[in-house]
Design a protein around this nucleic acid. Structure first.
Length: 730
DNA sequence: AACGTCACG
DNA sequence: ACGTACGTGACGTTA
C-alpha cells in the first residue's frame, strides 16, 4: 500500500490542493468540484457552515459518481450518516443560492481567505450587511465592519494611559462622563479599574493603587455628581453593593441603550456591540500585569473596553435620539439598573430547614407514586421520560392517542387528564401526581442550592433579554415560584422576612393589561366598567350577556375572564374554545358579543397590527419598540405569529413600562428609609419592611404604583402584609 | 443541543 | 388544508 503523503514534508496547504485530493481519492476534476461542495469548498461555503469530512465526501462520490446522483439516491442512505449527509447537502444548497445571490448583485465577495485558511472577515462582513444578517454578524467573532474599519480591525488604544494620580485625573475631567469598566475576580472582589473620558484613559489594578487612590476611587464611585457610563453596570454594582453601596451617578448604560434600540436581540455583550457598532474588536492585550493575588489582569483590554464604552455611548446616543428612544433609556432603563443591582444584592430570606422538610416530603410522595405506577404497569419504567410513557400508555396498554408532538404522542397534562377521565387505567392519574410532585421537588432543590452564605437567595434580574420590555429572573427564577396550588404555596411560605425586619409586603396591580387596553383603545364602555369599581369580569359579563350583575353566574364570569386574557394574546375562536372547553362556534359567538359591546377594543387591536405592519414595529406608551419583520412574511404561520406578537407587545410592554416607572418612584421614596425592594414579578412588587415603617411604606408603594402613570382608568393596587411571601399575598 | 413539559405573569 | 394565545426560565431525557 502506498503512503499517500508522509506526515512530514507535505504542508497542510498542499494536502488540500485539488490536484492532491484528486490523486489521493482517484477523482476526476468534475468530481472534485462536487467533492469540494460537500467538503465545504471555500468558494461554496460560508464560515460557520460545516462540510462533511474528507473521507466521507470522497467515499460517497466514489460510490455515486457525482453530486446529482448522490442527491437522487439520498433516500437510500439511512441512519446517522444519511442524516448528517442530508444536513450538509442542505447547507451546500443554501450556500450555492447565497453565492448566486452575491453574483446577482455584482458584489465580488471572496468569503474565504485561502492563503490564511480562515474566513475573509471583511468580505463576510460585507456579505452579512448586504443580507442584513445582523444577529449572525454579531455572533461571528472578528467580523469587520467595512464602513468603519480601522487599520487592523482592532480598537486602537490611541490614548495613552494617564500617569496622573486618580484624584488629579478625576478633577481634571470633572464635567465629563466617565466610562467605567471594573474587573472582578472569582470571588467578586474588584481587581482592576479602567476609566475613559473623551481625551484620556486612566487604568490600574487595585493592587498597584495606594491607599489614597483607592479611597479616591470609592469616593468617586459613590459620588452622584460624578457622571458615569458603563456596559451592564449592574454586573459589578450588585457584587460591590454590600461593601460599597450602589454606584451613584450612572447616567448611561450601553447595554440598556442597545436594548432599547433593539429589544429583540437579547442582551448584547460589549464585545458584540464593539463588533456591530464600531466595526472592530477588543484586542487580547499584550501587556498583562500580575496582581498581588496572582490574578492575571489585562489592563490594556480593560482600558480598551472603557474607550469602547465611551465611543459606543456617542454612537448609540445618536441612534436613540433619531428614534426618540433617549427618554426611555435615560428615564426608565438606566434608573432601573441601579434598583435591580440593589435588589439582587439584598436578596430574599428563606427558611432553609422548612425547604429541606419540603424536599423530603415531595421526594417521599414521588417515590411512593413511582412504585405504584410501576406496579400498575407490571414493569419498571422511567416516569420522567415522555417517550417511555408514550410506549407504555399508547402501545402497550392501547390507550387512545390524541395530540401529537414533533417526536411522538403527547403526554402532557391535558392528555393525561383526558385519559384519567375517560379510561379506567390507573396510570395516567399516577403520572399526573408524579409530575406535580417532582416539579415541586425540583423547584425546592433548586432553591436550596441557591441559598447564599447570608441565608438569602440572590436572584439575577435580566433587564435586557425580553423582547417586550419585561424583566426576567434567573439563577434561580423567582418569578415562577408556584402559587396556584396548596402544595405550591407551601414553597411560598419558605420565603420569609429577614432578621431585623418586621414584615414582607406585596403589592400587585389588578388586571393591569386589561386596564391598559381600556386606556389605549379609548373604549368608553370598558373604561366605565373599571371606573365603577365593581368586579371587572362580572361587570363586563353583564354587558356581554345583557343581564343584571346578580344574574352573572360563575361560568359566565369565567368565560368573560378567559376572553379578556385571550384578547391581549391575539386569540382565535379556536383557541378560546380550547381554553374554555366549549364548541368553537360558541366561542365565536362569545367573541362577537363581546366586540359588539366593546367595539373600540376590536378596532384598537386591528389598528395596532395594521400600524405595526406599516411601520415595521410596535410601540408602547413609553415609546419602546418591538420590530416585527415577519408581519410581511409570505409564510402564513409566521405572519400570523407576528400579528399576535404585534397585538400583545404594546400591551405587555406598556405594563412593563408602568411597573418599571413604579419601581423607580417607590425606590426613590424608600431611599431615606430602611425598608427595601426585594422582588419584581411582572405586576407585583415585594418589599421588606423595617420595624416602624409599615404605614409609611404602604403609602409609598401604593402611591408609587397607582400614580406611576395617569391613565383614563384607575390603576388599582392590592397590598398584603405577612411574615412569609404566601401570607403577604393575601 | 433540541425537545417536552410545566412553573409564573 | 393548516394551525391555532403572548412573554419568560429550568429541568430531565434523548439524539
Amino acid at each position: 500500500m502506498t503512503v499517500l503523503y508522509p506526515k512530514k514534508g507535505v504542508s497542510e496547504l498542499q494536502r488540500t490542493t485539488p490536484e492532491f485530493v484528486q490523486e489521493k481519492y482517484g477523482l476526476s476534476p468534475d468530481q472534485y468540484a462536487d467533492y469540494a461542495a460537500l467538503r465545504g469548498d471555500p468558494s461554496d461555503n460560508l464560515p460557520g457552515v460545516p462540510g462533511v469530512g474528507e473521507k466521507t465526501a470522497a467515499k460517497w462520490l466514489q460510490e455515486y459518481g457525482n453530486l446529482e446522483s448522490l442527491l437522487a439516491n439520498m433516500e437510500g442512505i439511512k441512519g446517522k450518516v444519511g442524516e448528517s449527509l442530508r444536513a450538509h447537502v442542505d447547507a451546500v444548497r443554501l450556500n450555492r443560492r447565497l453565492t448566486q445571490l452575491v453574483r446577482d448583485v455584482d458584489l465580488d465577495v471572496d468569503v474565504h481567505d485561502l492563503a490564511r485558511r480562515e474566513p475573509n472577515s471583511s468580505a463576510v462582513s460585507e456579505l452579512f450587511d448586504l443580507l442584513q444578517f445582523k444577529t449572525m454578524k454579531a455572533r461571528v467573532p472578528g467580523l469587520v465592519n467595512v464602513d468603519t474599519q480601522g487599520e487592523q480591525g482592532h480598537l486602537s488604544l490611541d490614548v495613552t494611559l494617564s500617569a496622573e494620580t486618580l484624584s488629579t485625573w478625576i478633577a481634571n475631567h470633572a464635567a465629563e462622563v466617565f466610562a467605567l469598566c471594573l474587573e472582578l475576580d472569582d470571588r467578586q472582589a474588584p481587581v482592576a479599574v479602567a476609566m475613559a473620558v473623551d481625551s484620556s484613559v486612566w487604568a490600574k489594578p487595585f493592587s498597584e493603587m495606594d491607599a489614597g487612590e483607592i479611597e479616591s476611587f470609592w469616593k468617586f464611585y459613590s459620588d452622584p455628581k460624578a457622571r458615569k457610563s458603563a456596559h451592564d453596570g449592574k454586573a459589578f454594582m450588585r457584587e460591590l453593593a454590600a461593601e460599597h453601596g450602589v454606584m451613584e451617578g450612572l447616567e448611561s448604560d450601553i447595554a440598556a441603550a442597545a436594548y432599547v434600540l433593539s429589544p429583540g436581540s437579547g442582551a448584547q455583550s460589549l464585545e458584540q456591540l464593539v463588533g456591530l457598532e464600531l466595526g472592530t474588536t477588543l484586542s487580547a492585550g499584550e501587556s498583562q500585569q500580575q496582581s498581588l493575588f496572582g490574578d492575571v489582569v489585562d489592563v490594556v483590554r480593560l482600558s480598551q473596553s472603557a474607550v469602547a464604552v465611551n465611543r459606543l455611548r456617542s454612537v448609540l446616543t445618536e441612534k436613540m435620539k433619531s428614534l426618540h428612544l433617549m427618554d426611555l433609556c435615560t428615564d426608565i432603563e438606566v434608573p432601573v439598573v441601579s434598583i435591580l443591582a440593589k435588589m439582587e444584592s439584598v436578596g430574599i430570606a428563606v427558611d432553609k430547614s422548612a425547604l429541606q422538610t419540603l424536599e423530603e416530603y415531595f421526594s417521599n410522595i414521588a417515590a411512593d407514586v413511582e412504585m405504584q405506577a410501576q406496579a400498575a404497569a407490571g414493569r419498571p419504567f422511567n416516569l420522567g421520560s415522555p417517550k417511555q410513557i408514550g410506549e407504555l400508555l399508547f402501545t402497550e396498554r392501547g390507550l387512545p392517542t390524541a395530540k401529537r408532538t414533533k417526536t411522538g404522542f403527547s403526554t402532557d397534562v391535558e392528555t393525561l387528564t383526558f385519559l384519567a377521565a375517560t379510561t379506567d387505567d390507573p396510570i395516567p392519574v399516577l403520572l399526573l401526581r408524579h409530575r406535580d410532585v417532582t416539579k415541586l421537588r425540583q423547584t425546592v432543590v433548586g432553591l436550596l442550592a441557591s441559598i447564599a452564605a447570608d441565608g438569602r437567595i440572590h436572584t439575577r434580574f435580566q433587564q435586557f433579554v425580553a423582547a417586550t420590555g419585561r424583566l426576567s429572573s434567573t439563577d434561580p427564577n423567582l418569578q415562577n415560584i408556584p402559587v396556584r396550588t396548596a402544595e405550591g404555596q407551601r414553597i411560598r411560605e419558605t420565603f420569609i422576612v429577614g432578621d431585623e425586619y418586621e414584615t414582607l409586603l406585596t403589592a400587585d396591580y389588578s388586571q393591569i393589561e386589561l386596564r391598559i387596553m381600556a386606556h389605549l383603545s379609548g373604549d368608553e364602555a370598558l373604561q366605565q366598567a373599571f371606573k365603577s369599581g365593581e368586579d371587572i369580569h362580572t361587570t363586563v359579563a353583564c354587558g356581554v350577556f345583557g343581564v343584571t350583575p346578580d344574574a352573572v353566574d360563575a361560568d359566565m364570569r369565567r368565560r368573560v375572564k378567559a376572553m379578556a386574557y385571550g384578547l391581549a394574546y391575539g386569540l382565535s375562536a379556536f383557541g378560546l374554545s380550547q381554553q374554555l372547553n366549549i364548541d368553537p362556534r360558541d366561542a365565536q359567538v362569545l367573541m362577537d358579543t363581546y366586540f359588539a359591546r366593546f367595539g373600540k377594543v376590536r378596532d384598537f387591536l386591528a389598528e395596532t397590527v395594521t400600524k405595526a405592519r406599516e411601520l415595521g414595529y410596535t410601540q408602547t406608551m413609553a415609546g419602546r419598540r418591538r420590530y416585527l419583520p415577519d408581519l410581511n412574511s409570505d409564510s402564513r404561520q409566521r405572519r400570523e405569529m407576528a400579528e399576535r406578537m404585534a397585538l400583545n407587545a404594546p400591551i405587555q410592554g406598556t405594563a412593563a413600562d408602568i411597573v418599571k416607572l413604579a419601581m423607580i418612584a417607590v425606590a426613590k421614596d424608600l431611599e431615606p428609609m430602611h425598608s427595601r425592594l426585594l422582588l419584581q414579578v411582572h405586576d407585583e412588587l415585594v418589599v421588606e419592611v423595617a420595624p416602624g415603617e409599615l404605614d409609611a411604606v404602604t403609602a409609598i408603594v401604593r402611591a408609587g404604583m397607582e400614580h406611576a402613570v395617569e391613565l383614563s382608568v384607575p390603576m388599582d393596587v392590592n397590598i398584603g402584609i405577612g411574615r412569609t411571601w404566601h401570607e403577604a399575598a393575601h
